[in-house]
Design a protein around this nucleic acid. Structure first.
Lengths: 242, 242
DNA sequence: ATTATATAGTTGTCTATACCAGTTAGTGTA
DNA sequence: TACACTAACTGGTATAGACAACTATATAAT
């Protein structure tokens, strides 16, 4: 259950174990979980380590505490979806189109200057580079290159990026995705874009550069996308803050 | 500074102390605070107690950590809030450029099909049409056409649109501006844009269509803008709601 | 039976220490 | 000069123990 020799921190292992128990319904809402001392005894770990796991689950809303009584499971969280931080897949589905992808390359390379700057890492640090043609209703929509710091986003496989990268980051790696910034510009298609997007020479494209950040401000993703301007409009709504 | 005999927990005292330092601006954004070990030494408390204080400030967004480097002050929440509903003037000032305008035309016309649809009014209803070249540092940046329902936005003058249209709407007309939606696309410049933006034939432009709404949902503004792609990138940040 | 009191449980706070892992600057060597 | 190494920092993880504050229950005295 708990592997003390694992590179994964003990508190994190306990966290995941408890989270899955809660989400599977093995412990119901408002039921007490075992006490901190009991966990410490059961897994032969320090009580402070148990507390670190429980603290995280409390701040994530899975548990609540009552001094002198115990620690209890919270009511199920309301499903909070990515507001605005949409992936290509979600974006296309919202637009009523069927998304698909064609993987061009998937490898670990040394970060270039721009990528290093965007990911706040040093040049030549290893990063995943994923090149894909994004299709909507089987027609090319965008040419997309994703960079992820290999030291942060570990254990990435083709399988994962074909499923949901964000879910992997949040659920398996237990990071919290917080915000993203995008820069959008217009340009004339270059040869590689002409080829993969099947457009004419001189055709305009919409270039989107996205940096995504974790809750602690760490950038974890940098995506460069070239969209066919004749098929894609970037839609965006904003509200005035209080 | 820290009272060990106070009934208020030490970590809470340190937390409040640091929070006020941050909010008063005594420590600026992205500046490092003293290390955990230094706080422990300075106040003769345990490093774990310092960490408890810092942990809380990190999860409240006041601080962020970097392993091996230190703990730093986060940007104020106002600064990191997505800047919404910016006018061209505010946008350029934020980018460190000096905005100005050249009025091309200012008249009341009958709404066309597209404009009527966007403003949710009937065709041929009177609307203001304002055509301007927007300049940044005295160089053409965008060609902008604004439509406003004449029956809603009353008493508009050249004077007002050269000042702040939004302020006029909110302060003089007592409307509350609430949100805007934008559609952004790439295109090749047409003749009129080539002329006013002083760009080459075949040059790409960034087309932004913005509809703005009052609090009650009434659309009050429709703006079509064509930006020089070589000088303008649309920047946009989004957060995940909680 | 009612009321104190003890006590055993819980979480909350705090200490002192240890080692790991990443960053940085300086130092020595090829 | 260029590069590798080292030393001294940083935060991250984990330990073992202590006492405080609070809650519930069992027990003894009234």
């Amino acid at each position: 259950m708990i592997d003390k020799n694992s590179p994964i921190p003990i508190y994190h292992q306990l966290e995941e174990h408890l989270k899955s128990k809660i989400e599977s319904g093995a412990i119901k809402a408002d039921e007490a979980i075992p006490s901190e001392r009991e966990y410490a005894e059961r897994y032969q770990i320090s009580r402070m380590t148990v507390r670190q796991a429980l603290n995280n689950l409390v701040s994530d809303g899975y548990l609540y505490r009552q001094k002198g009584k115990g620690t209890f499971v919270n009511k199920k969280k309301v499903e909070q979806r990515l507001h605005g931080l949409t992936s290509f897949t979600e974006d296309m589905i919202e637009r009523g189109m069927k998304p698909s992808s064609k993987l061009l390359s998937f490898e670990i390379i040394a970060a270039g200057a721009e990528t290093a700057h965007r990911l706040n890492i040093k040049e030549n640090t290893p990063v995943y580079e994923i090149k894909r043609v994004r299709l909507a209703d089987a027609a090319p929509m965008a040419l997309e290159t994703t960079y992820l710091p290999a030291n942060l986003i570990k254990g990435l496989t083709e399988e994962i990026i074909n499923q949901s990268l964000y879910r992997y980051i949040e659920e398996k790696l237990s990071f919290t995705i917080h915000e993203a910034t995008q820069q959008i510009e217009a340009a004339i298609a270059k040869d590689i874009e002409i080829k993969h997007l099947q457009i004419e020479k001189g055709a305009p494209i919409l270039l989107i550069h996205r940096s995504s950040f974790l809750k602690d401000g760490t950038p974890f993703e940098y995506v460069k996308s070239a969209y066919r301007a004749d098929r894609y409009k970037f839609i965006h709504s904003m509200q005035r803050g209080k």
